[in-house]
Design a protein around this nucleic acid. Sequence first.
DNA 1: TATTAGCACTCGACTGTATAGAGTGCTAAT
DNA 2: ATTAGCACTCTATACAGTCGAGTGCTAATA
Lengths: 344, 344
Amino acid sequence: MLDERKKKILQLIIEDYISTAEPVGSRNLARKYDLGLSPATIRNEMSDLEMLGYLEQPHTSAGRIPSAQAYRFYVDSMIEPGSLTDNDRALINGWYTERRRNIDEIFQSTAKILSRMTQNVSMVLANKDSEAVFRYMKFLPLNEDHAILIIVTDDGNVDNCVVEIPLGMRQDELDYMAGRVSRILEGKPLSVISENILEGIHTDVAEDELMFRSLLRSLRKISRKHREQRVFLGGTKQLLNQPEFRDVDRVQNLLGILEEERVVRDLLQAGEDSGLKITIGTENKFTGIQDCSMVQATYRLNGKIVGTMAVLGPTRMEYGKVITVMDYLHKYLKTMFEQGSDKE
Amino acid sequence: MLDERKKKILQLIIEDYISTAEPVGSRNLARKYDLGLSPATIRNEMSDLEMLGYLEQPHTSAGRIPSAQAYRFYVDSMIEPGSLTDNDRALINGWYTERRRNIDEIFQSTAKILSRMTQNVSMVLANKDSEAVFRYMKFLPLNEDHAILIIVTDDGNVDNCVVEIPLGMRQDELDYMAGRVSRILEGKPLSVISENILEGIHTDVAEDELMFRSLLRSLRKISRKHREQRVFLGGTKQLLNQPEFRDVDRVQNLLGILEEERVVRDLLQAGEDSGLKITIGTENKFTGIQDCSMVQATYRLNGKIVGTMAVLGPTRMEYGKVITVMDYLHKYLKTMFEQGSDKE
DNA sequence: TATTAGCACTCGACTGTATAGAGTGCTAAT
DNA sequence: ATTAGCACTCTATACAGTCGAGTGCTAATA
């Protein structure tokens, strides 16, 4: 275990490096912070810290930079939970007033503010509620061979799509059919609306082949939409602000990865269980981002995972700030979702 | 007017520069293309072309690069309409099969493929159809103090939102109200559903204050949604592939501009009238992109402007290819929209 | 008269060398 | 245990020299 002084010195080195992105030397450290120690002493301590694996030297005559192990130690036992500045808090509080028209927009805005406040790339994974329960359906008239199918789920979500109907089918026939299908499907989660059930509809209700196909397609489409996960990115251009990404090739590499929605989804899903998860450098098993760190929070509503948000940046990241921001955002969203009956 | 030989030389210089991004020298030009002229002769011609304002020299001992004037001349009188490779054509044809679930997705996909095929940033402005005409509305049950308001417009678009209703209002009362309001608003464009008309509803139909407010809010919201323009960007990361954007600061500058949706909207709207518009360098009056060129096409449906798509890149742009791609895409979308009754 | 060979000149890109500065490790003194 | 002092290492920077691509001009040529 590190003694107090080593710990203090390590902390200063980490924080200095986080804010300057320059390797930290003993002389500079002594001058900048009032430690009551000479550079030589600090050198000895730094040498020890290097032996212990907390520091690294880019080359002999440079200062030292924190290792992944150091960051790990830092986030585990040196960060005390800070609180947001009034400014930041106000920014978040005001952020959503104009941006909550629908759930997607909320997620997108979250990604945006998360990246803005942390100066890093943010990712938000929205787990669409796959357990939405079918409530009823209804046909509305459109023209002689098409109708609008409306499907309402118990969470108040309304979906619609245009279905082809047999020419000249009357509204009361449609109503009758909607009523019967509704009674069959009512209370069933969209996810289990399987082929069997649908076949049942076929024989029981919608003998007309065309009509049945049309209906089937619509139900599938809506079910898929509910199951679908969506990924929102924010602040990809913030990357360019980070000194470690002055190198265009590196930026391209990372952006290339982020562009693959599938990869980002996997990435976020991998750390979905725990509340707040911090992955530093090579702790992350995804190739291509092993020189980055990621701070990730999963949010739940009534026990179900609603989504995941994460900040991705260089290992030299303001962990304290990021954690604070995510914590506040997390709580904020939670209350917003809980009180929010105006889901759209 | 330029004689044939000058024209030929200018064209070769432009095309060489477009493909290599390196200033073109007389010696190199003579070697690379079989002109039957010595470097010295070419030098003389180049000197003339510089006098005439078509060429520029970055510095004395570099080759020459085309001026904005040269590009203008090039696009105006040297490009012959090419045709897409089979590969590219196949790519476009297959592109939308999985990506036409709704209108927004189509626009987004268009931005994506446009940037992919041109290796540049693409922008798509979707002019939501502000002339959508109200057709009817309907209330569907949700719970004891909320209902789902469905509004159908004549283009087959369906919108819904949750409205608060007086506690215990019966469905038949709601139906009655919906019927009456529908009769009042039917045939009116959403854009002209003004306060006056709405006031009329207030006194005539919905005496209940709460109900009226709720209804009003919903109508406004939907009307706003219809009026709304949306901007889709594609391939912002392609920027980094262009040699002129190896400079991180320049990239940041441009990305900053593109991030401002309002600016992009203005930019696209500025060139909305003409069918195909090419703006080269400082021809563009928007600050910040005056070292870029833009190729823009406006597409209409039944005479109305549906949207605008554009490609933005360095003045050294493959104008020919860009034009060809946009042309094909344009036609493709047109047929898709025209046949497309499955708008969502 | 148009073209071209030849030549002097310019300038950026690259290379090699010297130097300054920041940092280190080690040793001996405190 | 701490620190002053010193020799050493390594990078970044500046500077000089060279190479190569390109130019403009002039005189010779077809």
